[in-house]
Amino acid sequence: MQSAIKVENLHKTYAPNGGNKGTHALRGLDLDIKKGEFFALLGPNGSGKTTFINILAGPTLKSKGKVEILGSDIDTHRVKTKFLLGVVPQEISFDSFFTVNEILELQSGYYGIRNNGKHIDEILSKLGLKEKKFTNSRALSGGMKRRLLIAKALIHKPEVLILDEPTAGVDVELRRSMWKYMKQLNEEGLTILLTTHYLEEAEQLCSRTAIIHNGKLVALDKTSELTKEKTLEDVFVELTYESDTGSGTTTDTKPISPNKRANG
């Protein structure tokens, strides 16, 4: 099966900045997410998830390694790979000058799409934002802003959707409707990479799960395999927090080899 996202030996080191020492955020990450997967990438805060996503999307430059999106290298086909991705960032931020409709029209234009009104209406309906079409983004509630971020990411019909903690601060009802929609999109062929701190979401939605810690892969398997004997939360705690406590440091953790998870 074709790889949707393939990374080999990915490293990211942030340069020292003022009083902060440099950080080695990713340390030789290898990952192969297949086309059509609903894939969970889990890890504690500061484990490198957002750095990884930002390297895929563009805001962060990698230090070393290879990244391919649907077979295209991001070093040689940066613009093409951006067309393939839709990204829902962790932070909520909008152009405060514009309405919901204007934001989505501009986003369509950036991706070379003219007259995208029909698709804009469809997405707004699916995400329950149709009535807010001509409202300024500043006037939206937190949950609506999250949904607008999803609408923005989907407006150009990407092949791969990246969701970086999309349900943080979102109420239960909205979360359910959002996941229903995401599931439907996945069934229609959209590859989805999800990072979340709600482990039960990953457990329910994702066919495979990877756990990263201190910039390294510490587990990768079918979600059903990972949760055969324990809950995903137990596995997560064992591989991250307990391994830290065991070694007494957050940087020299000896990871459980992902290769031990047979179906990785």
Binding site: N54, G58, P59, V79, K82, V87, S93, Y110, G112
Partner: peptide, 11 residues
């Protein structure tokens, strides 16, 4: 406003 990441993401 945190929109620079957006600018770096568009194709």
């Amino acid at each position: 406003q945190g929109l620079i990441d957006d600018l770096m993401t568009i194709p």
